[in-house]
Design a protein around this nucleic acid. Sequence first.
DNA 1: CCGCATCCTATCGGATACTG
DNA 2: CAGTATCCGATAGGATGCGG
Lengths: 113, 113
Amino acid sequence: MPPTIPHLSALDTGCPHMRLLVEHVTSKWGLLVLLQLDGRTLRWSELKRAIPGVSEKMLIQTLQTLEADGLVLRAARPVVPPHVEYSLTDAGHDAAALLAPLALWAQDRVREG
Amino acid sequence: MPPTIPHLSALDTGCPHMRLLVEHVTSKWGLLVLLQLDGRTLRWSELKRAIPGVSEKMLIQTLQTLEADGLVLRAARPVVPPHVEYSLTDAGHDAAALLAPLALWAQDRVREG
DNA sequence: CCGCATCCTATCGGATACTG
DNA sequence: CAGTATCCGATAGGATGCGG
């Protein structure tokens, strides 16, 4: 079986920065947030409802991490009560596009076995 | 921006089994093992040398997890001293094929920012 | 050469309560 | 509504030493 990429020539598999970013987007809630925001904009409360089981702490923390990574866009309107919308940046959409097939593959595999 | 997949219709984003498998293949050492074994067979000691910084405990543990998931194949020849070879199953190769682009994307992103 | 067992610590992540 | 603050248990993962 041939390798998927021209073997490791283009990839520094040990790079810690790359690892960190991968950890962020594949983390328990990071993955769900990116998939939920793929192709649409959601308010904080909508996002929370769309991801059953997530705690407020983890949702905020995950969103802040992904925002710092430049994957998630936070748009706050200064009204009362507060109105905050989350969406994906172009880079975030790229990430979602890479993660969706991975999630689908994993789901298909566990359905059989 | 249109969604990457026909929105969440085919994907149960909350499925714990799917999550677990994703965690395994994207884990700190799981990712590196799959990429290193992509397209070639390595002995345990070779694999350890190919992944700088990995402890024996984590390497074994990771390999056993991936083997239990049906992604890694362990072939032990009953000689002394022991000779054990690791390679990818077809499913493991599929996983590597999905992970390599993700790793490359992450690497390209951290190089800029 | 390959792997198991034990200890130890840092971090992840859940529960709860409080604020502008 | 959209967070912040604090506590606390579980686990990931590193260090070390032993065994066939």
